[in-house]
Structures are given as C-alpha cells and as structure tokens.
Amino acid sequence: MGYFGKVLSGFGSLLTGMRITFSQFAKTFFGRKNVTLQYPKEQPKLAPAFRSAIKLIRFEETGTHDCVACKACERICPSYCIKLSGGKVEGIKKKRVAEFEMDFSLCSLCGLCIDACPTDTLEYSKVYEEAGYNRDWRVDLVAEFREYEAEFVEKQRVIEEKAATAKKAKAEAAKKAKEAKKAKEAEKAKEAEAEAADTAEKPDTAEKPPALEAKPAKADAPAKAEVPTAEVPTAEAPKS
C-alpha cells in the first residue's frame, strides 16, 4: 500500500465511523427513539437484588417488625452506622427494639447486618433518590412501626398468656402422667413381687403409658401424636 493507498484507506475508515454515528443519529432524530430514562417523569426499574439503606421487614402475620434488640447488627456493622436501644417491654416476655437509628451516610451497604439478624427482620429498602439540604442522614427505622407497637404488645401478651397456660397445663398433665406411671409401676412391681414369675413384661409396659395418658382431661396435641408413632408407621401420624 503506497502513500495514496494509505490516504484513501484512512479516508474510507473515517467515512465508516461517520456512517455509524449517523445511523445512531437517524435512529434518535427520525426514529424518535432514545435510551434516556426521563428520571423525574419516569421511575427506573430496580433490580430485585438492588441494595439501598436497610429497613425493618413488616411481617404479614404480626403487622410489624420482629426486632428483638439483640444488637447483633450493631456489633457486626463495620461502619458503626447502627445504634439501637430496647429491651424488656411491660407486659410481655419478648424483648422489643425501642429506637433503631441508622446513619445512611455512614452505611456502605455491605449487608452484614442482614446476615447477622437472628430474626431475619432486616432487608434492603428500595429507596434510591434521596437528596437533601441537610447533612444529617440518621434515620429511625422503627418510626413507621411505632403506631402498631401497642397493638402488637397486646397481641403478643395474649399469645404469651395462651402459651403460658398451655405450658402450665402440659406440665400438669406430664406431672399427672408421671405420677400415674409411678403408681402403675409400683402396682406392677407389687404384682411381679407377688407372682415372682420368670417372664419379663416389657412390651406391656411400652403400651401402657398411652392408655394412661388419655385419662387427663387436657391432653395436648403432641402427646396425642406420639401415640400412633410408637406402634404404627409415621404415615398415620399427620392424619390424626
């Protein structure tokens, strides 16, 4: 390729470049198609894994978050951006968070708090267009849940009471069963002593407790479920 050949081929490649840009120009100018997302008028489609500042999840069954103020997130945060307080709440056993302060300007969205949360109540929010005149970006994550807190405490109290009574009943039942068993065993021992026979009655003893457990008025489900499992295959257990 000589001098003129080089000049010509260079000129040709320039024209190729101009053809490409003109095709893009024509697509936008004549085709009225561009790739711009007109942000304030249109909102972007955020990816499912999009990360923004953390927030507390609102669970459907309780209508509020499930933070127990264990401070696992506060301890694991490498940026020291979480400060939370909380603890025992009057009336219920469960601990609740009182203030969950997150400084968005310190957060680097590493997600360690989300991994560390024992109750899985933290997740990334989809807040993506924050800007302001103020340098204070501390956010109270519990704020939006405050109004539901009393309701939740009331519900939780009821649940806990129920659970407590159930537990008490269960404990009583177990106690009764134990006593009954003891009595029976004592009886048996007496019988055995009386007969002074040579055979052992082990299969009998395995079958007897269920029969005895049916006696207490407040038999609870797990105890009932155990009845078939002792003898028959587990397939029957869910039926009952």
Partner: peptide, 14 residues
C-alpha cells in the same frame, strides 16, 4: 447532600 454508597444517578439528578 446525597447519601448512598454510591447514590444512584437518579439521586444525583434529584
């Protein structure tokens, strides 16, 4: 002040 790490371009436009 625009918080974020990093903020999205929308945040800058906002």
């Amino acid at each position: 002040y625009i918080p974020g790490c990093p903020p999205r371009p929308e945040a800058l436009i906002a």
